[in-house]
Write a protein that binds this DNA or RNA. Structure first.
Length: 937
DNA sequence: CCTGTCACG
DNA sequence: GACGTACGTGACAGGG
């Protein structure tokens, strides 16, 4: 194998840069829509792409053969050029549906060919190509750009040439002159004038390439031409150049490629590598490309893989020869040489399963204890790094490190290049946790796959997605329990106290299981048609959420502490009053004791018992009783303060991280079956807002000095989605016209003209609108509005008369769910409904969930898409995305960038459904600014 | 560990 | 005809 990364790129070196996107699109259009036999995954473009790569590799002989090579891809999403001109590439149609899942596969293909594969967020492939070509030229080497894209022609010259792979034609200075009528250094000037309808570069109207070249050749360059435009003889042309000067200058900036990007890799790292036949054959076999694998096998002189005709096995039960779990075979790695061998294995294979062991569960505070790796099922290792010496005499163990461990810094620095290598897939169970740990040790892990997220994309609603569940379900294997190593409760130890021998078995097994799950689940994504969901709505969120969580939000501890004290005083007073009224001392915090006093001592009417036989004392019951007696009112007052104090003003202080001084929640992508996130430790998605007292807690969430908090929230997003999905013209029109949707509903239902609308009528309509989203029932509506059930039923009947499409949507959705056992969002997320055909009391429950899930889930998908695009959109602004609360995003922004950030973030949020889904209703985002969350909201 | 209660969208 | 229901979450306290 070639030695990597040492020989300096310079004279005699020849860099090949392949325009990956051009390859993909050419392959896609050149081939019929082939699909993988076993599961129907579209692979036409991948097959064509592999073919082209193979032909390219085969042709690499003779004087033009490269010493260095990379395939460069466009990073999906917007580039920095959209910041200059928001219409840039705006009339590009979205990629065809069956091409989208093939994009990541072409990256996999490139890695399988052992060719470097590069893409950088916020930049186009052309800019990376430009930067590398310039670097190669400046180092005295040659560069060949394999592309026929005219935008790249500006780079030609001084050792840089282009190669049109289709026509096998080299393009040098003369070739560029032939195309543009000017030399490479003036190409951008011609393009600036001629514009480009494909990329939506405006240019000068009425001027094409021919005229542009004429003008440039006459005046020398664009700047001179524009300065001396008065001298142009043709009146029309003269006028255009004078009037459209700004537009032309913008066009030049748009077509000018960036030669000075900061790259996180060097030319040397692109050195040509020998093909690794196992890796390539594995990939081709997975894609079930028989002909191509035979051809390439023959070329490499290896055995072609046997590709079965039958579909792949689904679960362990179907797998004929499952490799057994043998924990005694796992390797204990304690030397650099052993670790080096594992790293080499991973490079050769192109993937590796990784798991970290730490001293606890808080990824912002715990220490790394060890790392386990697995490349082949059954063959895993554990690298203990910070285990403590066990000391039989000392109950508390020892602070000394145990023997048989590598130095932590050394191991991490050895693993860093592998973990950051774009050509090697890193596989995790719950990647966010491990990635955050690694980030704290200076490693930015990418690319990643996550078996937990795969399971969620396929089986949300069917089972949970923890490793134990997945292992038992899919591998028929019960993993070693962590409790058996750590114990439980007060006597539990941390992982660094676990003896090495036990730790190796447990930790390596986790990596082994993760790898096996990945091998099993990854192909199932296609079978279940959720590859796009996984690739576009799940996996890209891992780095986004990691960054938000690690940044955290600033909380004013003193403000919380003052509130706690004030609440405590009031509570003591209320407690005394309650004891006085009851005539005895009791625990106000015990619902059982409160119930006894209410319904037995005070003999109030209307009490109900819970299923455990206790008196039930929820707020709405106490609210009703408050009309007759002071006692229930005071209990409500007490409970409110108790809630605010224990859950918020006290608990939040404990969550302030001592190192950062900020609060770092953790979001769970799999927390809700609908696609919503959940937030925990602490939950920052349920900070009070509905009462005056509660809102004061939001005042304690503050911006750092010199900054503001801004909050952007989707207005009525679920109702808008309902209007779209159910196709309700009246609702859609009202949203388009920007009308008050609840007033409009009320007007329709009760025949009240809008200008005679009363707040109460509007309030009732609002309750009905929300009821519809939840799968309305007369009981629920009646309880919410405090009206008789018959009245509620009449409202609902009336509503369905006026909006028959809503009933159709509900009926259709229920029918779909019963038939398919799942429902779907507009973006293809599946929410499984295994209970939908259950009889008995659960039936109504499942039906309402089925009605709600596509609406709530589509809204969740939309804000997920916005969040994924946000980091690149706000890059360059002094702004950080901090929090998500279902339909709201909160940012911390330097004061002078508040307006810019709102403009950019609002654009991203309002356009988040595009281009995958064209909504019939506009999405509207409201924004607030403040020194704290209360002001911003 | 489960239940009841209540905070949010 | 009765039953029990608005959809989705997480945290805390009480009590066994």
């Amino acid at each position: 194998m070639a030695e990597t990364g040492e020989a300096k790129f310079g004279k005699g070196c020849h860099l090949h840069l392949i325009d990956g996107s051009a390859f993909i699109f050419r392959a896609y259009h050149a081939l019929p829509p082939l699909t993988r036999k076993s599961d129907g995954l579209p692979i036409g473009a991948v097959a064509g792409f592999c073919n082209m790569l193979q032909r390219y590799v085969e042709g690499n002989t003779g004087p033009d053969a490269p010493t260095h090579v990379a395939v460069i891809f466009d990073y999906s999403g917007k580039s920095f050029r959209n910041d200059m001109y928001d219409q840039y590439k705006a009339n590009r149609p979205p990629a065809p549906e069956d091409l989208v899942p093939q994009f990541p596969l072409t990256r996999d293909a490139t890695r399988a060919f052992n060719i470097a594969c590069k893409e950088i967020e916020g930049f186009e492939a052309d800019d990376i190509i430009a930067t590398l070509a310039c670097q190669a030229r400046d180092a005295g080497g040659r560069c060949t750009i394999i592309s026929s894209d005219k935008d790249l022609m500006q780079l030609v010259g001084d050792g840089v040439e282009m190669l049109d792979a289709m026509k096998n034609k080299r393009i040098d200075r003369d070739g560029v002159h032939e195309k543009f009528g000017v030399g490479p250094e003036r190409v951008v000037d011609v393009q600036a004038l001629a514009g480009d309808s494909v990329d939506n570069v405006p240019g000068a109207p009425g001027i094409g390439i021919k005229t542009a070249a004429l003008l440039i050749n006459e005046f020398g360059d664009l700047e001179t031409l524009l300065d001396r435009a008065e001298e142009i003889k043709q009146p029309k042309r003269r006028q255009t150049l004078i009037e459209k000067r700004d537009q032309i200058e913008l066009s030049k900036r748009l077509v000018q490629l960036d030669c000075e990007m900061e790259l996180d890799f060097t030319l040397e790292s692109l050195e040509v590598q020998d093909p690794v036949s196992e890796k390539l054959m594995e990939f081709l076999a997975e894609m079930e490309m028989r002909t191509l694998s035979k051809r390439i096998a023959a070329q490499l002189g290896v055995e072609a893989p046997v590709i079965a005709e039958a579909p792949k096995a689904d679960t362990a039960a179907d797998a004929p020869e499952a490799i057994p779990f043998e924990v005694d075979k796992y390797q204990h790695v304690d030397s650099a040489a052993e670790l080096e061998a594992w790293i080499a294995k991973a490079h050769k294979r192109g993937w590796i399963a990784v798991d970290t062991e730490t001293t606890g569960l808080d990824d912002m505070q715990v220490d790394l204890v060890g790392i386990s790796l697995c490349v082949e099922a059954g063959d895993a290792c554990y690298i203990p790094l910070a285990h403590k010496k066990g000391d039989a005499d000392d109950l508390f163990g020892s602070d000394d490190l145990a023997d048989g461990q590598m130095n932590l810094e050394e191991a991490v620095s050895m693993l860093k290049p592998l973990l950051e290598d774009p050509a090697v897939m890193k596989i995790f169970q719950n990647a966010k946790y491990d990635c955050k740990i690694f980030k704290r040790y200076g490693v930015s892990v990418a690319p990643i796959d996550d078996t937990m997220l795969m399971s969620y994309a396929m089986n949300a609603g069917v089972h949970n997605h923890g490793m134990d569940t997945l292992s038992e379900t899919y591998l028929s294997h019960k993993p070693i329990s962590i409790k058996s190593l750590l114990g439980t409760g007060k006597s539990a130890i941390t992982f660094d106290k676990v003896p090495l021998e036990d730790a190796v078995k447990y930790a390596a097994e986790d990596a082994d299981i993760t790898l096996r799950l990945w091998q099993l689940l990854k192909p199932q994504l296609h079978q279940k048609k959720v590859t796009t969901v996984y690739e576009t709505l799940e996996r890209p969120l891992v780095p986004v959420l990691s960054e938000m969580e690690m940044h955290g939000v600033l909380v004013d501890r003193d403000a919380l502490s003052r509130m706690s004290n004030s609440f405590a005083q009031k509570m003591a007073q209320y407690e005394a009053e309650l004891h006085e009224i009851a005539g005895k001392s009791f625990n106000v915090q015990s619902p059982a004791q409160v119930g006894q006093i209410l319904f037995e001592d005070l003999e109030l009417e209307g009490g109900k018992k819970t299923k455990t036989g206790q008196w039930s004392t929820p707020a709405d019951v106490l609210e009703d009783l408050a009309a007759e007696h002071d006692f229930p009112r005071r209990v409500l007052d007490y409970r409110q303060l108790q809630k605010l104090k224990s859950t918020y003003t006290d608990a939040l202080q404990d969550h302030i991280n001592p190192d950062t001084g900020r609060v770092h929640t953790s979001y769970s992508q799999i927390g809700a079956n609908t696609g919503r996130f959940s937030s925990n430790d602490p939950n920052l998605q349920n900070i009070p807002v509905r009462t005056e007292e509660g809102r004061r807690i939001r005042e304690a969430f503050v911006a750092a000095p010199g900054n503001k908090l801004i909050a952007l929230d989707y207005s009525q997003i679920e109702l808008r989605i309902l209007a779209h999905i159910a196709g309700i013209d009246a609702l859609k029109q009202a949203f388009k016209d920007g009308h008050d949707i609840h007033a409009m509903t009320a007007s329709e239902m009760f025949d009240v003209p809008l200008d005679e609308m009363t707040p109460d009528v509007r309030r009732q309509a609002k309750a009905i609108n929300f009821g519809v989203i939840y799968g309305i029932s007369a009981f629920g509506l009646a309880r919410n509005l405090h009206i008789p059930r018959s009245d509620a039923q009449a409202f609902i009947t009336r509503y369905f008369e006026r909006f028959p499409g809503i009933r159709t949507y509900m009926d259709d959705t229920k029918a779909f769910a019963k038939e398919n056992l799942y429902v779907q969002t507009l973006f293809g997320r599946k929410i499984n409904m295994p209970q939908i055909n259950a009889k008995g009391p659960h039936a109504g429950f499942a039906a309402r969930a089925a009605i709600n899930a596509p609406i709530q889930g589509t809204a969740a998908d939309i804000i997920r898409r916005a969040m994924i695009r946000m980091p690149s959109a706000i890059k360059g602004l002094p702004a950080k995305m901090l929090l998500q609360v279902h339909d709201e995003l909160i940012f911390e922004v330097a004061e002078d960038a508040v307006d810019d950030t709102i403009a950019v973030a609002r654009d991203v949020m309002q356009g988040a459904a595009d281009p995958a889904v064209k909504l019939d209703v506009p999405l509207v985002v409201d924004a607030g600014i403040g020194d704290n969350w209360s002001e911003a909201h």
